[in-house]
Amino acid sequence: GKELVLALYDYQEKSPREVTMKKGDILTLLNSTNKDWWKVEVKATANDKTYERQGFVPAAYVKKL
């Protein structure tokens, strides 16, 4: 199945390749080969529509579930 990670801290994206997350968010882990930056998929809701974004977050800010 898919691997999930838990956001340990809030993170505000600093570039278009990154994604914003809030502490407590559960994210889908896409790639953890880089030890510093993990690629995740974030589900977000805006205007009653759910959309998914993929991007990088600092590996130290998340932990595998």
Score class of each variant (00 low, 15 high):
38 W>F: 06
32 S>E: 14
12 Q>T: 14
64 K>W: 07
56 F>E: 04
36 D>S: 10
2 K>V: 12
48 D>S: 10
60 A>N: 14
24 G>D: 04
29 L>K: 00
58 P>L: 05
54 Q>V: 13
41 E>C: 14
52 E>N: 14
25 D>Q: 13
13 E>W: 05
43 K>C: 15
23 K>D: 02
17 R>E: 12
63 K>C: 15
57 V>P: 01
38 W>M: 01
31 N>S: 14
54 Q>M: 08
33 T>C: 15
18 E>P: 03
30 L>C: 08
57 V>K: 00
47 N>Q: 10
65 L>K: 02
11 Y>Q: 02
11 Y>S: 00
38 W>N: 00
41 E>G: 13
2 K>D: 08
47 N>S: 10
28 T>C: 14
58 P>W: 04
43 K>R: 14
32 S>P: 05
8 L>C: 12
9 Y>R: 15
5 V>Q: 00
9 Y>L: 10
14 K>H: 08
62 V>E: 03
25 D>F: 03
25 D>A: 06
61 Y>K: 07
12 Q>F: 14
29 L>R: 01
7 A>E: 00
42 V>G: 11
38 W>T: 03
34 N>H: 11
52 E>D: 14
17 R>V: 10
55 G>W: 03
12 Q>L: 14
15 S>A: 08
40 V>G: 00
14 K>M: 11
12 Q>S: 11
35 K>R: 12
49 K>Q: 13
46 A>Y: 14
30 L>M: 06
61 Y>S: 12
58 P>R: 03
64 K>D: 05
20 T>E: 02
36 D>K: 13
53 R>P: 01
64 K>S: 08
19 V>I: 15
34 N>M: 08
28 T>R: 10
13 E>R: 11
48 D>Q: 09
46 A>N: 14
26 I>C: 07
21 M>L: 07
59 A>M: 03
35 K>L: 08
44 A>S: 13
26 I>L: 08
45 T>A: 10
64 K>V: 11
56 F>M: 07
32 S>M: 09
6 L>D: 00
5 V>L: 10
38 W>Y: 06
5 V>H: 02
34 N>D: 14
37 W>N: 00
10 D>W: 03
57 V>Q: 00
54 Q>W: 06
62 V>L: 15
24 G>E: 02
32 S>F: 05
37 W>P: 01
14 K>D: 04
48 D>A: 08
3 E>H: 12
62 V>A: 02
48 D>I: 05
37 W>I: 02
13 E>I: 04
19 V>K: 02
43 K>A: 11
12 Q>D: 14
20 T>D: 03
28 T>S: 09
52 E>G: 13
28 T>N: 07
36 D>M: 10
8 L>Q: 04
35 K>H: 10
63 K>D: 07
19 V>W: 03
19 V>N: 01
51 Y>W: 10
15 S>L: 07
3 E>I: 15
59 A>D: 03
65 L>M: 09
52 E>K: 14
62 V>F: 05
20 T>M: 04
2 K>F: 14
2 K>A: 11
2 K>S: 10
62 V>K: 01
55 G>Y: 05
24 G>N: 06
60 A>S: 14
42 V>Y: 09
12 Q>V: 15
60 A>L: 09
56 F>T: 03
17 R>D: 11
34 N>S: 09
41 E>I: 13
41 E>K: 08
58 P>V: 03
11 Y>K: 01
57 V>W: 02
36 D>N: 13
39 K>W: 15
29 L>W: 00
43 K>M: 15
14 K>F: 04
30 L>I: 13
13 E>G: 14
6 L>C: 10
60 A>T: 11
23 K>P: 03
5 V>P: 01
42 V>R: 11
15 S>D: 09
18 E>K: 04
21 M>S: 00
10 D>Y: 04
24 G>K: 02
57 V>E: 01
49 K>T: 10
17 R>F: 12
18 E>T: 08
12 Q>C: 12
14 K>R: 13
2 K>P: 12
29 L>E: 01
17 R>P: 05
41 E>W: 06
15 S>G: 13
8 L>E: 03
48 D>T: 08
22 K>Y: 09
45 T>H: 11
42 V>D: 02
26 I>Y: 06
58 P>I: 05
65 L>V: 11
39 K>A: 07
19 V>R: 01
9 Y>N: 08
64 K>Y: 10
20 T>F: 04
41 E>Q: 11
11 Y>V: 01
44 A>G: 12
21 M>R: 00
40 V>W: 00
34 N>W: 05
22 K>E: 05
8 L>R: 05
63 K>R: 11
25 D>Y: 04
60 A>Q: 12
27 L>K: 00
6 L>P: 00
46 A>D: 14
4 L>Q: 10
53 R>V: 08
6 L>G: 02
46 A>M: 14
50 T>F: 09
11 Y>P: 02
3 E>W: 10
42 V>H: 15
50 T>A: 11
20 T>K: 04
41 E>A: 14
56 F>H: 04
22 K>M: 08
55 G>R: 02
62 V>Y: 01
26 I>E: 03
29 L>H: 00
32 S>Q: 09
16 P>H: 10
51 Y>L: 11
18 E>C: 04
27 L>P: 01
15 S>N: 12
63 K>W: 07
57 V>H: 02
35 K>V: 09
48 D>W: 06
1 G>L: 11
18 E>V: 04
42 V>E: 03
28 T>A: 09
30 L>D: 01
23 K>V: 06
54 Q>S: 11
40 V>A: 01
45 T>M: 13
8 L>W: 03
23 K>T: 06
50 T>D: 12
27 L>G: 06
49 K>L: 13
4 L>I: 09
5 V>K: 00
31 N>L: 07
56 F>K: 02
64 K>C: 10
18 E>N: 05
40 V>T: 00
16 P>Y: 08
54 Q>E: 08
55 G>S: 00
15 S>Y: 06
58 P>T: 01
36 D>G: 08
54 Q>A: 12
4 L>S: 07
32 S>T: 08
50 T>V: 14
31 N>A: 07
36 D>A: 09
13 E>Y: 04
26 I>D: 01
48 D>P: 08
44 A>C: 15
54 Q>R: 10
16 P>M: 10
65 L>I: 14
18 E>A: 05
55 G>V: 04
3 E>Y: 11
26 I>V: 12
64 K>Q: 08
6 L>H: 04
27 L>H: 03
27 L>Y: 08
40 V>R: 00
51 Y>H: 09
20 T>N: 05
4 L>Y: 15
1 G>Y: 14
43 K>P: 15
64 K>L: 14
14 K>Q: 13
10 D>C: 06
10 D>G: 05
21 M>A: 02
52 E>Y: 15
36 D>P: 02
11 Y>G: 00
61 Y>G: 08
17 R>M: 13
65 L>T: 05
25 D>L: 04
40 V>C: 02
50 T>I: 13
13 E>A: 15
45 T>F: 12
13 E>H: 07
47 N>D: 13
12 Q>I: 14
43 K>V: 14
28 T>K: 11
